[in-house]
Design a binder for these strands. Sequence first.
DNA 1: ACGTGTGAACCGATTCACAGCA
DNA 2: TGCTGTGAATCGGTTCACACGT
Lengths: 219, 219
Amino acid sequence: MERERICTKKSCFSFDTIKRLSLYLRNLKRLKEKGIEVISSDRIIPLLNVSSAQFRKDLSYFGEFGKRGVGYEVGRLIKELEEILGTNKEWKIALVGVGRLGQALLGFEGFSKFNIKIVCAFDIDKKKVGKVIEGVKVEDMKKLKTIIKRKRVKIALLCTPPHSAQEVSEKLVAAGIRGILNFSPLILKVPSSVFVSNVDMACELESLIFFLKRNERKV
Amino acid sequence: MERERICTKKSCFSFDTIKRLSLYLRNLKRLKEKGIEVISSDRIIPLLNVSSAQFRKDLSYFGEFGKRGVGYEVGRLIKELEEILGTNKEWKIALVGVGRLGQALLGFEGFSKFNIKIVCAFDIDKKKVGKVIEGVKVEDMKKLKTIIKRKRVKIALLCTPPHSAQEVSEKLVAAGIRGILNFSPLILKVPSSVFVSNVDMACELESLIFFLKRNERKV
DNA sequence: ACGTGTGAACCGATTCACAGCA
DNA sequence: TGCTGTGAATCGGTTCACACGT
């Protein structure tokens, strides 16, 4: 939907490139676990749903990591990608809205694998405040600004109901949050310096339905 | 990532068009709740993160729904979009993997708003089998094929751990599933007739981190 | 010979700009 | 006049194809 571009001295690349690098990184880690030490762009792509040219081009925006005639050294490429993406050091994030989805995210293993740690959680519901879920204490929304500032958290997961999402996002921005992963089905209005990424399950499902309906008609 | 195209007699449009239509529909429903009956493309776009030309063009692939000089009648456009997307009738879906995320999805209100209903859930864990969560009974994986066939379910939410995702997806396809919303961080290999949509939270977060790291450096 | 790295070519999505209708 | 609908122009991401290094 919103199309971001990122420009370096080398050249300009799309934001999708970064998402793909993240995908590459995850799959390279799997290869490493399997003991594979070297891989060519042609042999890695079955895992990725991406062409080999795309794979090479994505990497080329950041440097030359392969050996011609050989391929890529898995361990090295993992290190380089972690460096590029910034996951070589731990990132602390906040979570707002400890509903069902929020609780699921508190226990999501995928984050810790990427050195991402939820360090604080907030909810408006007094019954939830004070509880400790997955090792994280749920705090009152009123303390949001203080705690986020003190812990120097820059990224938040927004899992509140849609009616309060805009209001909460403004509080987050005021508290110094610079990136929001938005799970609420609402387009947030935030300053352009703040980056929002939307995870919209209902839209995904609805587009799936469109596709199926079409194919049924064909049959 | 994977780029789908859909072609009608009228013309060809991208799969993103469909996701946007879903976004339009949701926001039109909000407008209707607020009592707004007519809206122009220029006035709806602040809700959407989309240009007004894009909005009009997306609609134009399916017909002429507006009045020149006036705008779009909200109620009519909602009906048309529901017709296009296929959410004017109820869709039954299945859920596999009743972990934290699976349970969150079982209670997700966003689905019911779109006439989407989870009618069966499966897990391999004997402790979970037999439990009723959000009105849905958790069944053993062994019964997956029988129940999905009997209920004629065509869409599944895949929320298993990555190591079993591929295997489960194959069972789903064998049971007649034609669309999978994949929450596991793994690219599934399925026949081309089956449509997979990936919801990859870790990739989203990691790309956010990249963005923040860059901006920090600028400061 | 093999596989990377990359400028050039291609292709498709978005935007422009305006004709057409209320 | 105001806003839709849309062919044409633009822009940018992906793919091609090959030079280059090992």
